[in-house]
Nucleic acid binder design. Sequence first.
DNA 1: TCCCTGATTTAGGTATACCTAATATTTAGG
DNA 2: CCTAAATATTAGGTATACCTAAATCAGGGA
Lengths: 240, 240
Amino acid sequence: MTAGHRPGRSTESVDNYLKAILALSEPHGGRVMSKALAERLGVAPASVTNMLQKLAAAPAPLVEYERHRGVLLSPAGRRRALEIVRHHRLIETFLYEVLDYPLEELHEEAERLEHFISERFEARIAAKLGHPRTDPHGHSIPTLEGEMPHRSSLLLAEVTPPPAGSASCVYVVDSVSDRDATALRNLEANGITPGARLRLLPGERFLVSLAEPATGDASAQPISLTREDAQEIWIRPLSA
Amino acid sequence: MTAGHRPGRSTESVDNYLKAILALSEPHGGRVMSKALAERLGVAPASVTNMLQKLAAAPAPLVEYERHRGVLLSPAGRRRALEIVRHHRLIETFLYEVLDYPLEELHEEAERLEHFISERFEARIAAKLGHPRTDPHGHSIPTLEGEMPHRSSLLLAEVTPPPAGSASCVYVVDSVSDRDATALRNLEANGITPGARLRLLPGERFLVSLAEPATGDASAQPISLTREDAQEIWIRPLSA
DNA sequence: TCCCTGATTTAGGTATACCTAATATTTAGG
DNA sequence: CCTAAATATTAGGTATACCTAAATCAGGGA
């Protein structure tokens, strides 16, 4: 082995499996199938099976796995996955706030570093940042205790716009995805960042405009989003 | 492979071999033998031979290696080694200045992270720190262009103190080693950090006292160092 | 119910980077 | 100059994490 004495006990690769299982099980809360994992991790399905078998056979398994029935995080596995997500999001926040990284370059750097920082590093950047609760993309940062603060939000791509002729309605941008740098740059250029007010125009899907934070008035010309863009944006009702 | 798309081209392990060859060849400037490398890297001599053969056989070799005659860095290998050393020392400086790490914990964290930061990360922390020329241990930081600024200094363990009865003489602490955290904590507790004035008392080896920066006067009771401590301290004459 | 298709798993193989034990080379002492 | 000790190399093996190709399994439609 070449990555021997890492602060955490697991390898970079194992960390990535755990993170992927967490992310894919989040929507439905159930078991995750190998194919989905293989796709997300960019490896062959056979590699996934192999890894899951090894993980499940370990003395203190990080996953529960049954042949042909998919995989689930064990409590320990979930704790580790959340620790890595916490690292990732704290690092992103740090790069953004302290090192002035552009929004769309946060993910790649954090994706690498999240596996290698010590507890001390984590603690120090968290303190420096004033223990932030969300990262620059609007995602919740898991707590030190391994709790993931829940946020309820809607994927813009799945929201039906108000019927033609009726009034438009205003939402708040809850978060944007960090995984596609190009889309992210595009959204940012249009002012669509976490906290922004988004007015859904009636009738047409994915036709929106920015709204003034205070008044809710439209402040710019309509923005026509692609379906792909809408897949990257989570919104919540203004009131909540 | 598990550490795929790293900013640099080489692996963590290869980086460490290059750094070790650089460090061990620095004193005499000549070839480095497998045994010395094996000791420094904490691997078996056979593993070193293996790695050197592979490195030397690569299309654009990072080392020049001849069986039984030791190894030398190629220009490309030296460039890469200096890049990693630059990373290491910039990270140490950053951890110390920005994240308030204690001196003796810099090395371990930097040793891990040096392999994984991007060019952008390097550039940003260098800018944030005002492009420092030395790290908190007093070591020169290689330039972006791959030059290692030379500093001439003497290992305290090898300096003969002034003869008994004659005057003591004053040196400046040029640098302290970063590899032994315990020794480092001890030195720091005694005020022996880069830039401190050190008065060598006559006769006894390793018997020193701190001196006032301005006057050169002794400002404290004598400090009795062990031979091991003296192996960790580099000094230069006051004038230089 | 049966079978077909897609998903999953098994089998067998690659590359990296390490190990130990056995062998070979160099060098320094007599 | 020749041998013994120190050093280096070869040979063969382990573990991780990936791959492809060849079985095998599970669930839905005829």
